[in-house]
Design a protein around this nucleic acid. Structure first.
Lengths: 227, 227
DNA sequence: GGGGAAACTCGACAAAAGTCATGGAACGGC
DNA sequence: GCCGTTCCATGACTTTTGTCGAGTTTCCCC
């Protein structure tokens, strides 16, 4: 398979480009460049000019905001089939957050200029982008709601409920308590307390590689609990 | 001026529909309906099916999320020339927040179905929507950053700096401490403390109808301050 | 102009979250 | 297998934020 078909395959899985006719998809794929990053490598730095939109082929990354003391809020974890930096590109703004690879990662970068040109030409692309941006905004709204209206315990419960495939959250190597804490808008110590609280109540059990959910209904209830 | 031209005039001021050719604009205006609300009236309720996109002709409203104990986070205040509920419509989701009029208000509602149909037909509309959604997402990101990374004092300083036209924030009737507190993700008491703190340091002065900014540079510095 | 509601002020207190210090356990590289 | 690094556990302590109650002012509607 040639490079362009490969790119088209990856990109077609991304919501942003889903449902496009083959022709448009190839046009996008034609200008995309593949890049690899190792764990810990920085892909984007907040404030730098936006180079383009990224689609993840393989591996996981985190998109973050941080203050200058170095405390960071993870906006979201980004995995295969997802895109990032789309907001920066379409809002015509510098990178709105920092993105760091959490494991060895392969991404396709669609340069900003070309993407905007394609957006002009193809209405179908524009419509797909509308939907994916609206969904991004929906997600951000739920993050605001979480941070402002819910306790750390409730946020943790929600995180577990959403991430729980089957009976628990199988943790990848990078899913450390520090990362989860940053995602929930708190610090590792506090997260640890919350985790152990839930463990003592028998709702979950925690081991190094996995968090098992024992009482999903009750966990759901906690997730809706207000501070 | 007929109803449709009037609608077109109002809608053309909204970012979402800005820069559209007259033809498209008239198409949108043709399906819009005008509605009025009194202070305190609810325009949208979170969770209800999304009826359409709203553009404000006159008056101010607040878009909020709340938990069931009734505590609310104001997402943003919405005024003339702005739109709301666009995210719900384009994400094809129920209303994502509750919207309440803060004063007597006139809005134009563009029904969901029709809007989506127009989006199909007019690429220019889709592109305008892309930009305005990306800007909405940008705003939400800054809200997340505020809530998670900054102290109440810093948030207040930022709010004042952004809202400050000239030497201060002239408060409309509805800009009470309770509303500002809800916007900043805290409670009236705490906001009041923060306000008086800034007053004692001579950075601002507060009276019933206005907040005067005396030391904008220092206020800017506080706005960037982390917890 | 009077009466009532809403908004603001203020101090004392409670609770949630954040910080610090420390030790132990797991893991990764050699 | 050894050793250093990272991660996790845990208790004591601080700070920030939130809560309560009460008193005062302002505004708005009769």
């Amino acid at each position: 398979m040639d490079r362009e078909s490969e790119a088209a395959g990856i990109l077609s899985a991304v919501p942003c480009f889903s449902g496009l006719e083959a022709e448009v998809l190839r046009a996008v794929a034609g200008v995309a460049v593949r890049r690899r990053y190792d764990a810990g490598e920085m892909v984007l730095l907040e404030g730098e000019p936006a180079g383009g939109l990224y689609a993840v082929e393989e591996g996981w990354l985190k998109a973050t905001k941080s203050d200058r003391e170095g405390r960071e809020q993870v906006i979201r974890f980004v995995g295969p089939g997802e895109s990032f930096n789309d907001v920066s590109v379409f809002a015509d703004s510098p990178n709105l957050g920092t993105v760091v690879a959490l494991e060895p990662t392969a991404v396709w970068m669609v340069p900003r200029e070309e993407l905007l040109r394609l957006l002009e030409r193809h209405g179908a692309l524009a419509r797909a982008v509308v939907v994916s941006l609206a969904e991004r905004a929906t997600y951000l709204l739920s993050l605001v709601e979480d941070l402002s209206l819910r306790s750390v315990e409730a946020r943790l419960a929600r995180f577990l409920v959403e991430g729980a495939a089957g009976d628990g959250l199988s943790r990848r190597r990078w899913t450390t308590q520090a990362q989860i804490a940053a995602r929930l808008g708190t610090v590792p110590d506090v997260l640890n307390r919350a985790l152990r609280g839930l463990v003592e109540e028998g709702l979950i059990s925690v081991d190094r590689h996995q968090i098992r959910v024992h009482d999903l209904p009750e966990l759901r209830a906690r997730a809706l609990m207000d501070p």
